[in-house]
C-alpha cells in the first residue's frame, strides 16, 4: 500500500537525496519531490504543498526554511518542526544523523515516525558510505607508501620483494605500529640519508 503523504526532500547532495528517495519509496511513500537548490524552495513548497519537509543540516538555508513555516506567509497550512512531535530518542538520532523534518500541523505523530526513521537510517548509511570511501582512499595511499618503502628496503638490503615485505611486517609487529607508519619512517630515513 502506498501512503498518500507528500514528502519534500531538500538536499544539496544529489546522491544522498536519491538514496533517501529510494528508501522512502521502499517504505511505501510514493509522493516524493526532491529539491536541491534552496533558491526555488519557496516556490516548490507553494507548488507541491507537502505534508512533510525533510532537510539536511549541512544546508545553511535551514534558518530560511524554518522562518518560512513560522510566519506561514508561503505555506497554506501551518507547519511545525518535528522536535515537538516525536520522542526524545528519535530527535537525538535525527540530529546526530544530520537531518531535520518539518511537518504539517495535525499530521499524527505515528505517521511521521516511519518517515523520519527511514531518513535517519539512510543518512547514516550515506555517512558510512562516505567514511568507507575515505577509508578506501587512505588505504590506497597507504599501499603506495608501503610499495615505495619496500623498494627502498630491497635496494638497500639486497632483498627480494617478499623478504623485504616480511621484514617490514615483522618490524611493525615488534614495534606495535601500523605497516604504513613503518613505511613512512623508512621513506623519511631514506630521504634524510640520501
Amino acid at each position: 500500500m502506498t501512503s498518500d503523504i507528500k514528502i519534500l526532500v531538500v538536499d544539496a547532495n544529489p546522491i544522498r537525496a536519491a538514496i533517501i528517495e529510494e528508501g522512502l519509496r521502499e517504505a511505501g511513500f510514493g509522493a516524493i519531490v526532491q529539491v536541491s537548490e534552496t533558491k526555488g524552495l519557496v516556490a516548490a513548497i507553494g507548488q507541491h504543498d507537502p505534508d512533510v519537509v525533510v532537510i539536511d543540516l549541512e544546508n545553511p538555508s535551514r534558518d530560511a526554511l524554518a522562518d518560512m513555516f513560522q510566519v506561514s506567509r508561503h505555506v497554506r497550512r501551518p507547519i511545525t518542526m518535528f522536535v515537538d512531535q516525536s520522542d526524545a530518542a528519535q530527535i537525538e538520532a535525527a540530529v546526530e544523523a544530520g537531518v531535520s523534518a518539518y511537518i504539517v500541523d495535525g499530521l499524527r505523530k505515528e505517521r511521521l515516525k516511519p518517515i523520519l526513521q527511514t531518513c535517519i537510517s539512510r543518512f547514516n548509511a550515506f555517512a558510512k558510505l562516505r567514511e568507507e570511501l575515505d577509508e578506501v582512499r587512505s588505504q590506497l595511499d597507504d599501499r603506495k607508501l608501503v610499495d615505495r618503502a619496500k623498494g627502498i628496503v630491497m635496494r638497500l638490503k639486497g632483498l627480494g620483494e617478499d623478504e623485504a615485505y616480511a621484514l617490514m611486517r615483522r618490524t611493525a609487529m615488534n614495534e606495535k605500529r601500523k605497516l604504513a607508519d613503518i613505511a613512512r619512517s623508512i621513506i623519511t630515513a631514506a630521504e634524510v640519508l640520501k
Partner: peptide, 10 residues
C-alpha cells in the same frame, strides 16, 4: 555550524 536552527537543536 551553518545555521542557528542547528545550534539550537544540537
Amino acid at each position: 555550524d551553518v545555521s542557528w536552527s542547528n545550534l539550537r537543536d544540537r
